[in-house]
Amino acid sequence: MDGLEARGVAGPFALKGVDLRVRPGEWVALLGPNGSGKTTLLRVMAGLLKPKRGAVYLEGKPLEAYGSYARGRLLAYLPQGGPYPEGLLVEEVVRLGRLPYLGLWGREGEADLEAVAWALEAAGAAHLKGRLLGTLSGGERQRVLLARALAARPRYLLLDEPTTYLDLEHQGEVVALLRALVARGVGVLSVLHDPNQAALAHRVAVLREGRLVAEGAPWAVLTEPLLRGLYGRRVRVALLEGRPHVYLDG
């Protein structure tokens, strides 16, 4: 029973009964129009919101069966947007990712510092560690926040629009980083607003009005009829080398 799995999750806000599973080493992209319940589903699966019906299972056990710190070691959650403590050093921000191992009073040990160094390296933020968060560009900041999420060496990463507000180059960096993590066996569930980024994931799940309307490989899900239903009539899809490319006609 691998993976992080939502079973019949319904209740908070828009969700009306969703089943979704993320396996280790798999990247699932969550797509859908505004208000479809993407962020809510992500927070439910991160254990931050309780569903009215249904439940979330982590490696076969209900999420509530885990202690909060144990859950924090397995699942890392990165919300969209702030707050960003501008006057905090990058290294300190990333070290906060070790709190699931430290609790309120614990002291950082060798393993914690190693994990922080690894996370900074993996996120491509090692050169930033002596800077204040407020002095970074949007892309740099996002990499630091990702490093914070990685510092606990989680088995699952839950990311809410990790590429918003980033320019094209930085979007590419973040996507490359996610692919590298997935290759090392991390399970990633990311809310994305750009179908072309979703097309890079292993699987795409599409939410609409609180229900999963499609789920599967990108080429099977990202079809013109479905996307037109979500985004309007002018959407076109071209399949290049088995990967869908979405663009607007005219």
Partner: peptide, 23 residues
């Protein structure tokens, strides 16, 4: 004084603090 680090975590927002397992 010992909770300085935890107050730092709160600066990342309550959701992140909770996701880190903080009670």
């Amino acid at each position: 004084l010992l909770l300085g680090r935890v107050l730092n975590a709160l600066q990342l927002g309550e959701e992140v603090a909770r996701s880190l397992g903080l009670p």
